[in-house]
Amino acid sequence: MHRIRLLLLALAGAFALSGCQYHVLSPQGWVGEQQRNLLVISTLLMLIVILPVLFMSVYFPLRYRAGREDKSDYDPSFEHSNKIEAVMWSIPILIVIALGYFTWVYTHRLDPYRPLDHLGAGAPVEVEAVALDWKWLFIYPEFGVASVNELAIPAGRPVNFRLSSATVMNTLSIPALGGMVYAMAGMETKLHLIADEEGTFPGRSAHYSGPGFSQMTFDTLAMDEDGFNAWIATLRAGDETLDRARYLALEAPTIDEPVRHFASVEEGLFDRITGMCVEEGKVCMGHMMMQDEMGGGGLEGIANAPAYSYDRQRAIDGFGTRIDLPDPDVAAFHEAFLNDPDAICGPGFAGTETRNNG
């Protein structure tokens, strides 16, 4: 009966794991292969310590238990062994040196900002990826098209990603191709990948970002050159344009967004997304930082505060629904501070500020 229970338990475990995908250990791209190799090397090096420790944690308590019959090997005068000391220190030191070496090599080899030109795999494809709530927007600046929740790339050619986010931090992850890099609002990060084989590889956000996170997924379609060119031609044959107004509508939080294609994209849209100035009247991030470096706008700039506000228009509740917050009364805040600088630290002012400005 006990054996039957163990067998049923093993079958249940196998059934539970049957839906798992092991893309990390079975990559389809050069970057993924290098990362898999580093993972395997690091694991084997650490097992050099872990396996003997597991063995000794069982062997020594049994071998030298108090109730054993033969105690002739007991030596109460034993204090030190140079051989044991040499083994206990030399093996960990060698393992740390090996781990440090491989980490240094692979850290430089797999720098996500490093182009894959050394592979000699042809001209790269440029893709501008934007993390939205809760979907992915992919813009192809060379072809003037874009797609939502679908990424098409030519197999055998590098892909140069420029990443940004419309709101919170996200992570672009395609496990079969390797690597993942954060996408952050107001910033641009980079990632370089390549698919060695044709196929469909799942991609997703690997950083929790709210109620729609679990459905923030997409398919990566790795095609041959003819298939990729046909995909681009299909998008160009459409009639939907991704301009600034259409982007702002697309930016609204949605869950389980279907695949969508755009036949044309407004020039410079990604730079405006990164600069957080897609909306009319908003100051771009670069100009904002330049103004801050020059001392800011001073009291005269209070009236221009809405041009620098970004997060308030994108506030959401726990269900992903937009929240309309009142415009902040910045002028009143500064006036109160000038009249009585200590007053803003009091509970009365804090309560008023919460009611007026959220």
Score class of each variant (00 low, 15 high):
304 N>T: 15
11 L>Q: 12
319 F>G: 08
138 F>V: 12
328 P>Y: 07
302 I>G: 04
350 A>Q: 10
76 P>Y: 07
215 Q>E: 14
3 R>M: 12
303 A>L: 10
36 R>T: 08
62 L>R: 15
152 A>K: 11
24 V>M: 10
85 E>C: 13
116 L>R: 04
146 A>T: 02
252 A>P: 01
67 G>I: 06
211 P>M: 05
181 V>H: 07
335 E>A: 09
79 E>T: 09
64 Y>R: 14
46 M>H: 06
242 L>H: 00
337 F>P: 00
298 G>E: 12
66 A>H: 14
73 D>F: 01
9 L>E: 07
295 G>S: 06
280 E>Y: 09
87 V>H: 14
134 W>N: 10
272 R>C: 11
349 F>K: 10
313 Q>F: 05
91 I>E: 05
306 P>D: 11
188 E>I: 12
334 H>Y: 12
300 E>Q: 09
17 L>F: 02
101 Y>L: 10
100 G>N: 10
1 M>H: 15
125 V>L: 01
346 G>S: 03
358 G>D: 06
299 L>M: 10
111 D>T: 02
105 V>G: 03
333 F>C: 15
102 F>E: 05
252 A>N: 03
178 G>K: 00
174 I>W: 05
277 C>G: 02
12 A>N: 03
98 A>R: 09
50 I>C: 04
329 D>H: 10
126 E>D: 09
141 P>K: 03
208 Y>I: 01
35 Q>R: 12
275 G>A: 10
92 P>E: 15
167 T>V: 08
196 D>M: 04
66 A>V: 14
25 L>D: 13
164 S>L: 04
246 R>S: 13
222 A>Q: 03
251 E>P: 11
61 P>L: 14
247 Y>C: 05
174 I>V: 13
271 D>C: 03
97 I>P: 03
307 A>V: 04
17 L>Y: 01
220 T>I: 10
